[in-house]
């Protein structure tokens, strides 16, 4: 791990933590437990398709840790977030490597598996399976938000020069 990567990961961890903080202020009037927009995932998808999977995994898990340290503590919220992000990272990385599909399916399937992971973890914690009644609604809403986030992420990505080009500029200087 070189210094450039350390700096890059910490930069994006900071960015996604701030986004996460502002997102927690947005109240969505949908009476489904656990639904969030997942705005911080824009950063994740961007990093995955711009810098590669190592940075993506680093940014996601350090963000979960930092959010727990700063805001929520290592309680139920941390476990739910960890399980959701673990599932999302697994499926998104699989899609990134095994297929030629774009950020849209990575984001949408990541969002679906994020809610599946959270619901499974909640079942483990609360020792009851009733929460599964909400999983389909949670998954439909996550699909929609995942698609919208991919649209936003695409707007950013198409305006960026290719990563190798930026490193070339730096060396030429």
């Amino acid at each position: 791990m070189n210094i450039e990567r350390i700096v890059r990961i910490s930069l994006f961890v900071a960015l996604s933590t701030v986004i996460h903080f502002f997102e927690s202020m947005i109240v969505i009037p949908i009476p489904i437990p656990g639904f969030k927009l997942g705005l911080a995932n824009i950063v994740g998808v961007f990093v995955l398709f711009y810098y590669g999977y190592k940075d993506y995994v680093g940014v996601t898990f350090f963000r979960v840790l930092l959010v727990a340290i700063l805001f929520s503590g290592f309680g139920t919220g941390f476990l739910l977030s960890f399980a959701g992000n673990l599932f999302a990272v697994l499926i998104t990385t699989l899609i990134y490597f095994l297929t030629r599909s774009s950020i849209f399916s990575a984001s949408v399937l990541g969002a679906i598996f994020h809610s599946i992971g959270q619901v499974l973890m909640y079942m483990l914690i609360s020792q009851s399976v009733y929460i599964i009644t909400y999983l389909p609604y949670l998954a439909i809403l996550s699909m929609l938000s995942g698609f919208l986030l991919a649209l936003i992420c695409r707007m950013v990505l198409i305006r960026m020069p290719e990563y190798k080009d930026t490193s070339k500029i730096r060396r030429k200087r």
């Binding site: 297929t99 774009s102 399937l109 198409i158």
Partner: peptide
């Protein structure tokens, strides 16, 4: 990989 393509249709339909 930034644009919506045919494989996306398959994966999103699977979802």
């Amino acid at each position: 990989r930034y644009n919506f393509n045919f494989q996306d249709v398959i994966f999103i339909l699977l979802g």
